[in-house]
Amino acid sequence: MSQSPVMERRSPDTGVGGRGPAEAAFIRIDGARKVFTQRSGGAVPVLDNVDLAIAENEFVSFIGRSGCGKTTLLNMIAGLEDVSAGRIAIAGKVVTGPGQGQGVVFQQHALFPWLTAVDNVAFGFRKSGLAKAERCRRALELLSLVGLDAAAGRYPREMSGGMQQRVSIARALALDPQILLMDEPFGALDELTRIELQQELLRIWEARRKTIVFVTHSISEALTLSDRIVLLASNPGRIKRIFPVDLPRPRLRTDPGFNALYQAIWNELST
């Protein structure tokens, strides 16, 4: 519980997936701060001085209570939100907006309800300059990657929550991004569907080699998926501790190592 939580974040290089400082950080967050200005004019610090380095092909989860700024941090990496101070860089290039190799999977209901599954995925190619037929072909290919070829013509309201999130993943993969940013993508799903999609995600991650940053509320989800778990604390949001997960995949909940880590993270979260 009281193991020096600050040590790891002060030296981000040593925190890179246990692969050592020799491997350059792919996503580098240096002293990132986020301040929201209220209507009344007051400033609320949401994230304070976050340092983090994420290696290429690493799977990192952000975990923490509501309001710890984990989604804000994800949005800043996505380039959807400005950094108030500090900087975030991807492959050495400072993030100034979306479209720098970040694909994003949002919480539920982020599909365009007026587009069918295949058109939602094809939307990802809007600015790609590809011909329409080619966009459609690739969209179908991505749909079959997530196992949804049969539902290509369905509107989001005609699909279950799990199917919708599969489409979301396919859409995020459209431009073949190096980074997949996922904001509680399975949070609203039932337990069985959630486990299914976790396995699916690991399969895609291994097949396509992506760097994944995954925001979740669930300790066991983070443990099932991640190479490292970044625990954030609130008021203001900051990195409290980083847990490397050195367990072989596929990970079993019954594994003693899994349980020990679960307990450690729980203890840290509940203090």
Binding site: L80, F106, F112, W114, F123, G124, K127, A174
Partner: peptide, 26 residues
């Protein structure tokens, strides 16, 4: 829904194109 706008922005849409192809149908 701001999430729809965000989703479109991740694919590089902005300004009038974003308005026409996301805000309007929504």
């Amino acid at each position: 829904d701001p999430t729809l706008v965000r989703a479109a922005r991740t694919f590089g849409l902005k300004g009038l194109e974003l308005y026409r192809s996301v805000v309007l149908p929504a």
